[in-house]
Amino acid sequence: MSERTPWWHDAPPSRPRRVSGGIQIHGTRGAVARTWWSARFIEVLESLGVGGRLARGRTYARAGQTLDLRVEPGAVVARVQGTRPQPYRVRIGLRTYGKAEWAAVEQALAEDAWYAATLLAGRMPPEIEQLFTGLGLALFPAGGHDLSMDCSCPDHAVPCKHLAAVFYILAERFDADPFEVLTLRGRDRETLLANLRTRRSDTGPAPEAPTATPLADLLDAFFTAGPAGAAADLPPPPTPPDALLDQLPAFPIDVRGHRVVDLLRPAYRALGDTEDSLVRDVDR
């Protein structure tokens, strides 16, 4: 007689306690991440292959089971309501960069104001990932080994559904504010922008401009006429030879569908060219 499977293996998962006013993601179906940068964190989660816990984590995130969530340098801390009366404490950790590392990043960002402008517009420029890589750093975690994950629930699997729920909420937070990705690496929005402003202003003294006469010293002579007779010596502006035709009233008839003025215009221009050639011959 074979041993019977313990009853708790077949038991359906218990429902979590309802939460009022919890944090929930807006998407009710489909992919959670809407931008490429938030998708990076979801890729890490899905690469761990935890199967059904991901689906239950999405359900928790959409049901608003997360009571609160805080992003700070190096960590995401949250409380998620499960089946027990006491909410579970969830923490996701990521290595922060030190002062020297961030100084190199800020210098590279300050050299092109487009990065800060794009971030302020609510977007994460794809080139920023290559910028970090070029400095020997990583903006996003490469996998589960780059993250520390902990939950106070009794589930031994990592990540559990409570951690998965926080990941999904975090992805939506990143969608709305890409600065939080940088906060997780150790630089909050205000500090980063202040440091970028300082670096852009510390470019050294500007070269001295050539000395110019103050405008106030030039006002007395500004409207003074030039030498007497100078204006009379200026040649009159050239007049097109067919300008007279533009002053004539319109003829009441056409010649074979053409306006009389248009038929006369080539002759007037030819006469003008002849006159110009005669003047040049006399000047010689």
Results as ranks from 00 to 15, higher is better:
Arg4His: 09
Pro6Ala: 06
Trp8Ala: 05
Trp8Cys: 09
His9Phe: 15
His9Trp: 11
Ala11Leu: 11
Ala11Asn: 12
Pro12Phe: 03
Pro16Gly: 13
Arg17Ile: 07
Val19Trp: 12
Ile25Tyr: 01
Ile25Asn: 07
His26Phe: 02
His26Ser: 15
Thr28Ala: 14
Thr28Phe: 02
Arg29Tyr: 06
Gly30Asp: 15
Val32Gln: 08
Ala33Glu: 00
Thr35Ala: 01
Thr35His: 10
Arg40Glu: 06
Arg40Val: 01
Glu46Val: 04
Ser47Trp: 02
Ser47Gly: 15
Val50Leu: 05
Ala55Gln: 12
Gly57Ser: 07
Arg58Ile: 04
Arg58Met: 13
Tyr60Arg: 09
Ala61Trp: 00
Leu67Phe: 01
Leu67Lys: 15
Leu67Tyr: 00
Val71Met: 11
Ala75Trp: 14
Val77Lys: 14
Gly82Glu: 10
Pro85Asn: 08
Pro85Asp: 02
Pro87Tyr: 02
Arg89Tyr: 11
Glu101Ala: 12
Ala103Asp: 04
Ala104Asp: 03
Leu109Arg: 07
Ala110Val: 06
Ala116Cys: 11
Ala116His: 13
Thr118Lys: 12
Leu119Phe: 08
Ala121Gly: 14
Gly122Ala: 11
Arg123Gly: 04
Met124Val: 00
Pro126Ala: 11
Gln130Lys: 15
Gln130Gly: 09
Gln130Met: 10
Leu131Ala: 00
Ala138Ile: 03
Phe140Lys: 05
Met149Leu: 15
Asp150His: 07
Asp155Tyr: 08
Ala157Asn: 10
Val158Phe: 05
Cys160Pro: 08
Leu163Arg: 07
Ala164Phe: 00
Val166Asp: 00
Val166Ala: 03
Phe167Ile: 03
Ala171Tyr: 03
Ala176Trp: 12
Ala176Ser: 11
Pro178Phe: 02
Glu180Ile: 10
Thr183Gln: 13
Arg185Lys: 14
Arg185Tyr: 00
Arg185Met: 05
Gly186Trp: 03
Arg187Thr: 00
Asp188Leu: 02
Arg189Asp: 05
Glu190Arg: 14
Thr191Tyr: 01
Asn195Phe: 01
Thr198Asp: 06
Thr198His: 10
Thr203Phe: 08
Pro210Thr: 02
Ala212Glu: 13
Thr213Asp: 05
Pro214Asn: 08
Leu215Asn: 06
Ala216Cys: 05
Gly226Phe: 00
Gly229Trp: 12
Ala231Leu: 13
Pro236Gly: 13
Thr239Asn: 06
Leu244Pro: 02
Asp246Ser: 10
Gln247Glu: 01
Ala250Pro: 12
Arg256Ser: 04
Gly257Ser: 07
Val260Thr: 04
Val261His: 09
Val261Asn: 05
Arg265Pro: 13
Tyr268Arg: 14
Ala270Val: 12
Leu271Glu: 03
Gly272Ala: 13
Asp276Cys: 10
Leu278Arg: 14
Asp283Glu: 11
Asp283Met: 13
